[in-house]
Nucleic acid binder design. Structure first.
Lengths: 362, 362
DNA sequence: TTGTAGGCGTTATCAT
DNA sequence: ATGATAACGCCTACAA
C-alpha cells in the first residue's frame, strides 16, 4: 500500500496483459474500446504514475535537462535559469541545477554525472577557463546535445546563445564619448571569459573610432563581482588625471564603483560618469540610477532551451550561434561634460546648486 | 563506441563476473587483490560510470532532491537554493529546480512528478494557498521526506525551516516607534502566506505594547512584489494624515514604496521613514540605503537541506520546526522625529541644509 | 487486437 | 572469494 503502483497492478486490476496497458498509455497500438476503458479506469482509481526511472533506463534518455551555471546567487543568472525552465516545462522537461562557482573541476564533475544520468541535453554557462570540449569528449563521444549560454569557452564550435557583447559595449562607450568624455576608463571582467573580452573589444573600438587613446592603467581587470569592482575603482580613482567616466563591464562591478565613489566623496555623475552592463533591476534604485546596457537573461535562457530541445528532437543542421541584441538604457549616472552648464534643470533638483559648483570647480 | 560503458564490459575486460565488479565498486564483499586490481584497471581504462538510472530503479531511490520554489527570479530565493545546493552537493545529492509561480496546481504537478522520479526528498517553499498535505497524501502515502522552507501551509505539522518573522517585524516596528513615529503604516504580503501573517502580527504587537492604535486603512495588503508595493504606497501616501513611517513586509515592496515616494516628490526619510524585510543586497544601494530586517536565505536553505538529508538517512524523531534569527540592519531610510533637530551631522552631507529645512516644514 | 518475453544496467541473494 | 541469476518497471518486437 505504501509502494507506488506499477503497470503490472494496472494490468491485474483491468484483467489485461501488461503489454496492453503499455499500449493504451502510449497509444502505440489500437486497443478495443472496452479494454481501453477498463485500463483507464484502473489507472485513475489506482493513481498510476509511470516510473521515470524505468522509462529512462529502457529508452536510454530522460526528460531532464542539465543546467550548469556559475552561481545562481549572481543576480544575472536567475533570469537565464527561469527562461530555460519555462520552455523546458512547456515541453515536459525538467531542469537539474548545477552551480560550478566557476571551477572547471566542478563543471567537469557535473557534466560527467549528467551524462551518466542520461540527461536529454545540457545547457552550460561555462566556467572561466573551462575546457568544455575536453570534458565532453572524455570517455564516450557525446550523445547528448549541448548548448553554451552567455559565453563560450575558447574554441567552442557548437551551438551557443549569447548576446552581442561587442556592440553593447560599443554603444556604452560611444554614449560616454558623445557626452564629451575624453578620459575613459574601463573595468573589464576576467580575461578568460569570452564575454568580458568582447565587451572590452567593443569599448576599444568606440575609442578608436573617436581617435581616443587609452592609457593601459585605465583598463583594470576585475572579477565581475562587486568587491573586485570596488577595488578596481579605488585604483582608478586614485590616478591623476582621474578618468571622468568609467565603463564597468557588468552592473555588479558598477555597484562597486558607486561604493568607491561614495567612500572617496566623489559624486556620480558630476565627478565621474558611470555605465554598467546587464541592466539589473537594481539599476533603477541605485543612487544615482545607473545607466546600463540591457540584455535579457530570460530570453537567452529561453532561446537556449528552445535550441537544445530542437537538437534533442533530432535537428541536425550546422551549429548555430545566436546573438541577442542589447540596448543602452539611459538613466542618471552619466553627465554630459561639453554642455554641462547649458543643461536645463527640468525640475529643480535639491542638489542643483551644489552640483553646478562642483562641476565648475572641475 | 558511442555507447556508455557498462559493468558487463568491465567484467569482460577484467575476466571476472559482473557480480565481482559490483563488489569491488561498492565494497560489498572482499575481493582478492589481483582481481580487484584488474577490475579497477578496467574501470579506469574504459572510463566506466555507473548508470544512475539503473541504480535508481534497482534501489528505488535516486540521489536527487526536489526543490520547489515560487520563482527563482525573486531575489530572495536564489540564496535559499544555493544554500540547499551546497549541502546537497557535499553529500552527493543533486537538485532539480521547480518554479511554481505560486500556483498550487503547478506545485501539485511537480510534487507528483518528483515522487514518480523517486527523488530522495523534497524541499518546498509552498505556493500561496497550496494544500501541501493533500498533494503529498494523494495516491500513495509519502515515502519521501519533505521539509517546508521559508513558510508553511496552513496546518502543516511536518518538518520546517523558517525564520522568526514575528520577532523580526516586531523589531522593525519597535525601531520606528523608538524613533518617534506615531503614525505607522504597514504593507503586508498575501494574507494566505504564513510569513506575511507572522510579520503583520509582530508589527501589531509592537504597536500594542506602545499603546498605539492603527487605522485599518493603514494596513495595506500587497503581493510581496515591487509593483504591488508601489501601488499600496500610492494609496497610503494619498491619505491624510499621512503616515510618517511605513513598514514594508519585504524589500521588494519597499522598493516600490521608494518609487512611489520619488514620484510624489516626497523624501525618504525626511517625509516618510521606511523599513523593509529580507535585507537584500540592493538595500545598500538604494537611495536612501534601506533599513531592513536581515534574514539569511542561504542558511535557511542549508539548514533545510541538512534536515532533509538526516530524514533521508532515516532520522525518525518528532517533526522539527527550526526558526532562524533575524537582525535589524540600520541604514538611512529611517529618521528620528523626536530628535530630528538634535541629530549631529557626523560628516557634513551636501544635502544637510535642505534636509533640515524640509523637516522643519513638516 | 492482445499477450509473451527479452532486455535496459544495476544490486543482492544464493550457490559454489 | 566468486559466479550465476533474479528482480526493479517499462517498452517493444514478435507470436498468437
Amino acid at each position: 500500500m505504501s509502494d507506488p503502483v506499477t503497470m503490472r497492478q494496472i494490468a491485474e486490476r483491468a484483467q489485461v496483459s501488461i503489454g496492453t496497458v503499455s499500449h493504451v498509455i502510449n497509444g502505440t497500438a489500437r486497443v478495443r474500446t472496452k479494454l481501453r476503458m477498463r485500463v483507464q479506469e484502473a489507472i485513475r482509481s489506482l493513481g498510476f504514475q509511470p516510473s521515470a526511472l524505468a522509462q529512462g533506463l529502457r529508452l536510454n534518455r530522460t526528460k531532464m535537462l542539465g543546467m550548469i551555471i556559475p552561481d545562481i546567487t549572481n543576480p544575472f543568472f536567475p533570469g537565464v535559469v527561469r527562461g530555460a525552465e519555462d520552455v523546458a516545462f512547456r515541453n515536459s522537461y525538467r531542469l537539474v541545477l548545477c552551480n560550478t562557482d566557476n571551477e572547471p573541476a566542478k563543471e567537469a564533475l557535473y557534466v560527467a554525472e549528467l551524462r551518466s544520468f542520461r540527461a536529454a541535453g545540457l545547457l552550460i554557462i561555462p566556467a572561466a577557463g573551462s575546457d568544455l570540449r575536453a570534458e565532453l569528449s572524455s570517455g564516450t563521444p557525446a550523445t547528448q546535445p549541448v548548448v553554451c549560454v552567455d559565453r563560450c569557452p575558447e574554441g567552442w564550435t557548437g551551438d551557443a546563445v549569447v548576446v552581442d557583447n561587442e556592440e553593447g559595449a560599443y554603444q556604452a562607450a560611444k554614449h560616454l564619448i558623445r557626452s564629451g568624455h575624453r578620459h575613459l576608463a574601463v573595468i573589464t571582467g576576467p580575461a578568460l571569459l569570452a564575454n568580458a573580452i568582447e565587451r572590452l573589444n567593443g569599448f576599444k573600438r568606440a575609442l578608436r573610432e573617436a581617435r581616443l587613446s587609452i592609457a593601459s592603467e585605465f583598463v583594470q581587470e576585475a572579477a565581475f563581482d562587486t568587491r573586485s569592482g570596488y577595488q578596481a575603482a579605488k585604483r582608478l580613482l586614485r590616478m591623476l588625471p582621474r578618468p571622468t567616466a568609467i565603463f564597468a563591464c557588468n552592473d555588479l562591478m558598477a555597484l562597486g564603483v558607486l561604493h568607491a565613489l561614495h567612500e572617496l566623496d566623489l559624486r556620480c555623475p558630476e565627478d565621474v560618469s558611470l555605465v554598467g552592463f546587464d541592466n539589473l533591476e537594481v539599476c533603477e534604485y541605485t543612487n544615482p540610477a545607473l545607466t546600463s546596457v540591457y540584455q535579457s537573461g530570460y530570453q537567452m535562457g529561453a532561446a537556449a532551451a528552445g535550441l537544445l530541445l530542437e537538437r534533442i528532437k533530432g535537428l541536425q543542421d550546422a551549429p548555430r550561434h545566436i546573438a541577442l541584441e542589447t540596448e543602452l538604457k539611459l538613466r542618471k549616472s552619466v553627465m554630459s561634460i561639453a554642455n554641462f552648464d547649458k543643461i536645463p534643470s527640468k525640475k529643480p533638483r535639491r542638489r542643483s546648486k551644489a552640483n553646478r559648483e562642483a562641476v565648475l570647480a572641475d
